[in-house]
């Protein structure tokens, strides 16, 4: 009896399958696809943001265009006016993202030669993650005055996204944390 389990069932009804393409539905579908495709294309054209580095932003012709940039936050530059909800800070160019983001950000902030860019954000509460050596991903426009006016701020704190290992201190109880 169990052997039967391997056999293909013989009594499954195979109805004569209807043949031919139902053109009116195919055409309906094509119209729908074209319509939605157009919607997606339009959305892409108006919503597209070039994702570039600080260096690329300053070298290219981007003044007045909405772009997305990434840079390392310089902690001491952060100025926050909580009454008017204005945030000003400076970011440093990140050369290229490596697997060790924490080190890349750390070096970018300390490198005096790294290109820096002043950022101005209005009407936003200072994000909890805005701190030294965080990676800022900003959407906005570069003004004629060389300041980047950001409308959207996304921050990544490397320690949150990277596993931290205990340092040598755990080897010797006499060394502080």
């Amino acid at each position: 009896m169990t052997q039967l389990a391997w056999e293909k069932p013989e009594n499954v009804p195979v109805e004569a399958s209807p043949q031919g393409i139902q053109w009116k539905y195919v055409i309906g579908l094509i119209v729908l696809f074209v319509g939605i495709g157009y919607l997606i294309l339009q959305g892409t054209a108006s919503g597209a943001r070039y994702f570039i580095s600080v260096d690329e932003l300053l070298k290219g012709d981007y003044i007045g265009k909405t772009v997305r940039i990434s840079g390392a936050v310089i902690g001491e530059s952060i100025r926050y006016d909580p009454q008017n909800l204005i945030i000003d800070f400076t970011i440093a160019n990140i050369p290229s993202e490596t697997n060790d983001l924490a080190r890349t950000l750390h070096e970018a902030v300390r490198d005096p030669k790294a290109t820096r860019l002043a950022v101005h954000v209005r009407d936003q509460v200072k994000p909890d993650l805005l701190q030294n050596e965080a990676q800022a991903i900003l959407t906005g426009k570069l003004g004629e005055d060389g300041i980047f006016y950001a409308t959207e701020v996304l921050l990544k704190c490397p320690s949150r996204y990277h596993e931290i290992a205990p340092n040598q201190s755990i080897a010797d109880p006499s060394i502080g944390k």
Partner: peptide, 23 residues
């Protein structure tokens, strides 16, 4: 869009919230 632009256009294009709110 980000993957396509990176592979074929040599730049990264991302689509923000406004794309989704439109489409």
């Amino acid at each position: 869009a980000p993957i396509f632009s990176e592979l074929f256009m040599g730049t990264t294009i991302t689509l923000g919230k406004d794309y989704f709110l439109q489409v």
